[in-house]
Design a protein around this nucleic acid. Sequence first.
DNA 1: TTCTTTATGGTACAAGCGTATCATAAAGAA
DNA 2: TTCTTTATGATACGCTTGTACCATAAAGAA
Lengths: 205, 205
Amino acid sequence: MPRTVDHEERRSMILEAFMAVAAREGLHAVSLRAVAAEAGISLRSVQYYFDTKAGLMQAGLATLEKLSNERVKTRLEALEPSPSARTTLQALFAVALPTDRESRRFHLLWTSYAMLAMTDPEISDRTFVDSPNRLQERIAFILEEGKSSGEFDGALNGELEATILISLIHGLGTAVLVGQQTSESATSSFEHYLDRLAGAKSGNG
Amino acid sequence: MPRTVDHEERRSMILEAFMAVAAREGLHAVSLRAVAAEAGISLRSVQYYFDTKAGLMQAGLATLEKLSNERVKTRLEALEPSPSARTTLQALFAVALPTDRESRRFHLLWTSYAMLAMTDPEISDRTFVDSPNRLQERIAFILEEGKSSGEFDGALNGELEATILISLIHGLGTAVLVGQQTSESATSSFEHYLDRLAGAKSGNG
DNA sequence: TTCTTTATGGTACAAGCGTATCATAAAGAA
DNA sequence: TTCTTTATGATACGCTTGTACCATAAAGAA
């Protein structure tokens, strides 16, 4: 076995260049040559590690998902031990909001991939069902915990509320991304929503 | 003046072909040749009426916005006279939900354009601020009317609730589009939300 | 009818694309 | 050292793209 290189390390280096190009010029503008130039390697090397463009695109989506999961995990682990349901929901919202460049990049590319998957069979559209489903289950679980602890009304329908919450989080995120809402107004809207969800009796703003 | 053709009629015929191609193959896959073939005319004619591809893309977005406004208008005019705030909000939600092929097409292309506008300066990103802003003002107005009529609590913060509502509508719409939610579950989530907004005292599911 | 402008077709061009092929430098195995 | 496999560079091919150019049919104006 001659001249062995760490393939995983090489692939992730190229994927980082992929992300940079995709975020800067748009997912539609990604080309093997542009990624190669961004990574400072030759076109041939990108082919070598990803074979085809479809392979690179699929790896890009997988990376995006992995990075997002890591961001969520890191954010939640940074919380105090046994956080309240509200605190956990706030953390999930904060990580979903496209405030810094990395989260803006994620939101832009994730949505671009989702739209691409609607017409391109090369991109698995299961991702955009399974991944939100996992998040929704997680939120439902948090709500159940909140019910147990008395933080939320025991009659609250966790499944339904989780659906609303995830849609609201996503909707506010998109509004911030395109510049229709500031992150401040989105945050106060979300807080207001949590107030009513927790209060469940008085719905003032 | 020789051989005059109705330019507006010709342009809208080409734009219809544009929509068909964009919805079927994705906005990124639109080419002047594909649109020409779809319309059954020559490449040259598409150039003649839209000059450049950028011109066609801009006209496509404008058409999309116009069609959406017309859909909303038609849906609202079909309501009974002096509808309740809740009825009006339900109608707005129904028209935003990607259920039939035309509304799915709108949601797909609108979101694709929004993402495109983030990286392509040729596409005006003002559209994705102004258009939701108008809808949000409209919703805020509906909520104010609901407050006046006693349908909603007078202490309700119309601006904040409008922000939440528009984000929720958009978020649920996207979830339905990608297949993560059925239109039925999205609708019952929305109804549940309206229940709590109207009740403002008991928040059961 | 003749002229002039409009509308359209056909086509050529340069650029960029994904992919494939060939050569070769690098490095562990013999 | 010699051999063999890995990793990379350079490059060519066929295709599609947006754009530009040239010709011409069609139709109101003279």
